[in-house]
Design a protein around this nucleic acid. Sequence first.
DNA 1: ATGGTCGGGTGCCGA
Length: 259
Amino acid sequence: MKIATFNINGIKARIEALPEWLAAAEPDVVLLQEIKSVDESFPRAVFEDAGWVLETHGQKGFNGVAILSRLPLEDVVRGLPGDGEDLQARWIEATVVGKRAVRVCGLYLPNGNPAPGPKYDYKLAWMARMQARAEALLALEEPLVLAGDYNVIPQAEDAARPELWTEDALFLPETRAAFRRLLNLGLTDAFRARQPAPGQYSFWDYQAGAWEKNNGIRIDHLLLSPQAADLLLDARIDKEVRAGDKPSDHVPVWIELDA
DNA sequence: ATGGTCGGGTGCCGA
């Protein structure tokens, strides 16, 4: 089972590039972030006519997550539990039924800039809520994949120029500590485990020629429960997508599970 | 059009 995460930065803007990547990469499941669309205006037919099962959790203008799958999806949950007041569309879960059942969570973790400030407070509170949800799901002792745009640079080696990020919400010590607490629940950073070499990135800013300079960061992650890590066969970043026509500022990151 | 780049949805904000 090939499972990918891809921050597409707007479904309407990616309505050609996304289907092209799907056809070439042939994933079984894709967790999408920043669809920037309400559910009613998501171009469902483009994907359903191509054989995809689609579950969306959108909002007007910003954020929004979705799941595309070749396999049936069951028990869909929309929204990160733990705060009924939070209306931002940043979390979606479903169970994918293949050879094995795999619970997948697609997440768009808050950016948090500027830090300090209310946006950074929201980021840290959201990470605490995610920690509680991860604990609850890990207690089931089943294959679990938490995949998405974490807006976290885990270590200095995950940035081409870490000195540029020392005051940024993506790399502040408190951010990295919260991410580390997730890992310390027993989760595996699949890409780090399979591709330990530094200098591999999933995001390059549109500004200041970041792509041309390879001034990237690795912020899109797939974290695996022990039961999923046991099934891990491969993990890759589809870097070449960033050089395509009308690209997102993120590229797909994917794993292959024996499931 | 918004400085520098995009996207979405307006009549700038978020990233």
